[in-house]
């Protein structure tokens, strides 16, 4: 019989096992709830050949595996978050058995309660700001010609450097301003690393990758605020996604 582990998806408050009884997780294993005080870890069995340290090391290099598992993990988080306040866990949090799960819940009890208080009744929105790529590219028309002297070349480089720096400052201020305005319209906010265009397909430079925690009831207002920002900056692309479970405001350093 294969060695099994408990894969943890998220931690909820006040969740009854019956609420997840009809749901399945990875590899169609049934979802279960491991309780500790009022907290419940949503788990399912996984085989350690696939999800143990060796297995993970191998599988995390396989993008198809990674995407499949990430999507399933996200499906479970979505379903559970719809039932009550939920703190999502990172991918591949595995415990050997239920006692180990309960130990983790106990060790992180205070932090978990604090996180659940923070996210209850609130949802995450992702807002990204993408500026046209020309903002930081140096003009190709000014590439060196053979008659340019060494001194002139350096002076030109110096000028281009200066122009780049002032464009940078302008763009940074813009990103900061947009983030600031959206932060005011939300309960909590966070900047995430910009995503590379080669990965996302956005044309231009992502100068803001913001996550915003918004009261569920304020969703329409928040979306209106984002629309307004797009109108105020027609030359930029304001990309909004959501509402999502509060991933960026509940991640625990497990």
């Amino acid at each position: 019989m294969a060695d099994l582990g408990r894969y943890l998806y998220a931690i909820s408050r006040g969740l009854a096992e019956s609420q997840v009884a009809s749901m399945t997780g990875l590899r169609d294993a049934p979802l279960e709830v491991v309780r500790h005080r009022e907290l419940g870890a949503v788990v399912s069995n996984v085989e350690l050949t696939e999800f143990g340290e060796e297995g993970l090391r191998r599988n995390l290099e396989d993008l198809r595996w990674l995407e499949e598992v990430a999507r399933k993990h996200d499906d479970v988080v979505h379903a559970v978050a719809a039932l009550g306040p939920t703190a999502p866990l990172r991918l591949a949090t595995i415990c050997t058995d239920d006692d180990a799960v309960r130990r983790r819940l106990d060790e992180s009890y205070a932090a978990l309660v604090s996180v659940l208080d923070r996210v209850e009744g609130r949802l995450e929105w992702s807002v990204k700001l993408i500026v046209p790529a020309t903002v930081r590219a140096s003009s190709p028309a000014q590439s060196s010609d053979s008659t340019e002297s060494g001194a002139a070349y350096l002076m030109r480089k110096k000028r281009e450097d200066h122009e780049r720096a002032s464009r940078s400052a302008h763009v940074a201020a813009l990103a900061g301003s947009v983030h600031g305005q959206l932060s005011e319209a939300s309960v909590a906010s966070r900047r995430l690393p910009a995503q590379d265009a080669r990965l996302t397909g956005f044309e231009g430079d992502m100068v803001l990758n913001g996550a915003y925690l918004v009261e569920a009831d304020d969703a329409t207002q928040f979306e209106a605020r984002v629309s307004a920002l797009q109108s105020e900056h027609p030359d930029c692309q304001v990309s909004v996604s959501g509402p999502w479970p509060p991933y960026s405001f509940a991640m625990l350093e497990q």
Binding site: A165, R167, S168, V171, A175, R191, A194, V207, L208
Partner: peptide, 12 residues
């Protein structure tokens, strides 16, 4: 450019 450096960090 500096903005890239700042945009590359995960904020609190």
């Amino acid at each position: 450019d500096d903005w890239l450096g700042e945009a590359a960090q995960t904020g609190e």
